[in-house]
Design a protein around this nucleic acid. Structure first.
Lengths: 111, 111
DNA sequence: TCTAATATTCGATTGTCATCGAACAATAGA
DNA sequence: TCTATTGTTCGATGACAATCGAATATTAGA
C-alpha cells in the first residue's frame, strides 16, 4: 500500500498553508470538506479532470491542510482542523468565513 | 505623475490576498508595516535587491493588501487594514498573529 | 541646471504550477 | 480470475512568478 506523507503539525508552514489556500478550486474543496467532514475525491464536484483534482489533493495534503485516509480504492479527505487551530489559531475559520461571504468565483472570468 | 492602481475594496479577491500573503518576503514586509504603520521601500530591510522589492510591493498593492502613497521620490506603504477587516473580518489579524508566533523563515533552507 | 536619492521598468533566467489526456496501479466484487 | 472503480503518475504545455542587473524615470536639493 502506498504511503501518503503528511507533515507533522509542528512542521506546517504558514506560507505553504496560505499558498495552498490561494487557489479557487482548493478553496472550494475545503468548503465542501467543511460541510461534510469527510469526502472522497470522486464525491467532490469540481470543474477539473481527475488528475488535476489529484494534484490539488496532494497540494493540500503536503501543506498540512488536509488529511487523507486510504480505504480500499478510495481516499477520504478531511481538514486537519485541530492541528491547524492549534498551530495557527483562528486562521482557518477566518479564511473559510471570508470564502463563504465573498462570492469567490471558482473560475476566474476573463475581463 | 505616475498613477498607481489600487483595487476597490469590493474587488479585493480572497484568493489573490492569500496568494500575496503566501510569500515569506511579503509576510515580512507586512510584519514591518504592522509595527511602523507606514514605511518607504528603502526602509524595509529584506534580502532582495531593489527591483525585486518593487515587484513584491506591486504584488501586495494589486492584491489590495497595501496602499501606496507617493511623496516626492518615495513611496510610503501601509496596510489597508480597514478595507481588509471589513471585507474579510479577522483574516489579516489571524494571519499576522500566526506569522509572529510561528518563526516563519524568510529564506527557505534547502533540506 | 546638475547631481544624488528613490524607486520602477525591462529583459533575461530559472523555476514552479495548473491543466489536460493517457497510461498505470490498486482494490473490490462478480 | 476478470472487470469495473477509484485514484495516481507521467509527460507535455502554457502561463506566470521570483530573482537579478542594467537602464530609466522622477523628484529634491545644491
Amino acid at each position: 500500500m502506498k504511503i501518503l506523507h503528511h507533515p507533522d503539525k509542528a512542521d506546517i508552514q504558514l506560507s505553504s498553508v496560505l499558498y495552498a489556500l490561494s487557489d479557487p478550486v482548493r478553496l472550494f474543496i475545503l468548503a465542501e470538506l467543511r460541510r461534510s467532514g469527510e469526502r472522497t475525491c470522486g464525491d467532490i464536484d469540481v470543474p477539473v479532470v481527475k488528475s488535476t483534482l489529484s494534484h490539488h489533493a496532494r497540494t493540500l495534503r503536503e501543506a498540512g491542510v488536509v488529511s487523507v485516509r486510504v480505504h480500499g480504492t478510495q481516499r477520504f479527505l478531511s481538514i486537519r482542523t485541530e492541528d491547524l487551530e492549534s498551530r495557527f489559531p483562528g486562521l482557518l475559520t477566518s479564511v473559510m468565513n471570508a470564502y463563504e461571504h465573498s462570492g469567490e468565483p471558482m473560475i476566474i472570468n476573463a475581463e
